[in-house]
Design a binder for these strands. Structure first.
Length: 283
DNA sequence: TGAATTTGACCCTT
DNA sequence: AAGGGTCAAATTCA
């Protein structure tokens, strides 16, 4: 699985947006050659082009490269008689994907192996590894509850490390129910298999139990995991509202894509998009 | 009784 | 030295 930096993610999504906008412009042109809405589509195209140009220039200038995950699984599972292995810190930069969700479920079977109080965090950080780790699966994840608002459901920030190369992942994918969003990846692309859910026992996290449904963004559904390394999923509750708005035409699809992109940019990408657009228009 | 979870300690990185 | 990730013995659960 390729590492996806926020810039790369934006670039991918912007490219998709650009293609959608072009398609939208074609549709508008075909429907009504003199439609003033064509200008709007053209404006969207121009914006996409500017962002892509700016991002391309930015990466060409030498953006920070994310460190690759150095999971030495052989050493990690060496018997106690061997010398102590060198533990590799899997910091935030090594995460293959980070998501926020209203649920901790993602369809995989995880085994908790640790819990830690983190400075400045109200809730402990939970450490899980794939239940099929004995098959050599190196996938692990870190779950951090992000806020505890009485008016809002729990939100979790989940960072994924390593890749699922176990049979469990394949089985999971096969059993994915219709509610599942396919990310086009065997690493993330499976949903909540009921059997798996029941094996997931509730953790000690405030006595909470895992939700039986995952909440994934429909807008993210068409993106592969390699394209979206970090995205935001709404809570399950909010999801059902979104589920009713099924993209039925290219225009709606495009707007949904913009919504997804907007949240991604607002919540994830640490740069000022307006400034970026201004800079690229000046250049 | 076996499997999963909890939790304090250990160790690595910064 | 502090913070964070992992180990592994103890505990809990089905």
């Amino acid at each position: 699985m390729a590492l996806a930096t926020p810039d790369a993610v934006v670039l991918e999504l912007m490219t998709m947006g650009q293609e959608s906008a072009a398609y939208l412009a074609d549709l508008l042109r075909a429907a009504s050659p003199s439609s003033p809405h064509q200008e709007l589509a053209a404006e969207i195209l121009r914006c996409c082009h500017r962002v892509i140009a700016a991002l391309t220039a930015n990466s060409a200038a030498g953006g920070k490269k994310r460190k690759a995950v150095e999971h030495d699984s052989a050493a990690a599972w060496s018997p106690p008689s061997t010398p102590p292995r060198k533990r590799t810190r899997v910091g935030a930069e090594a995460a293959l994907g980070v998501m926020r969700s209203g649920t901790m479920e993602d369809g995989f079977i995880w085994r908790k192996y640790g819990q830690k109080e983190i400075n400045g965090r109200k809730h402990p950080r939970l450490y899980y590894r794939c239940a099929y780790s004995h098959q050599g699966c190196t996938a692990t994840r870190r779950v951090q509850r992000t806020h505890d608002d009485a008016h809002q459901p729990a939100a979790y920030e989940i960072a994924y490390y390593g890749e699922h190369n176990c049979r469990g992942a394949a089985a999971c994918q096969q059993n994915a129910p219709p509610t599942v969003i396919d990310f086009g990846s065997n690493a993330w692309g499976c949903g909540t298999a009921p059997a798996a859910s029941e094996q997931l026992r509730s953790s000690s996290l405030d006595g909470e139990t895992m939700s039986s449904q995952g909440g994934w963004s429909p807008a993210s559904a068409s993106a592969s995991a390699s394209e979206v390394g970090f995205f935001e999923a709404e809570t399950t509750h909010e999801w059902h509202d979104m589920a009713g708005v099924t993209p039925s035409d290219p225009a709606t699809e495009f707007l949904d894509g913009c919504f997804d992109l907007e949240s991604l940019i607002n919540d994830v990408v640490p740069f000022d998009l307006d400034a970026l657009l201004n800079a690229s228009s000046v250049a």
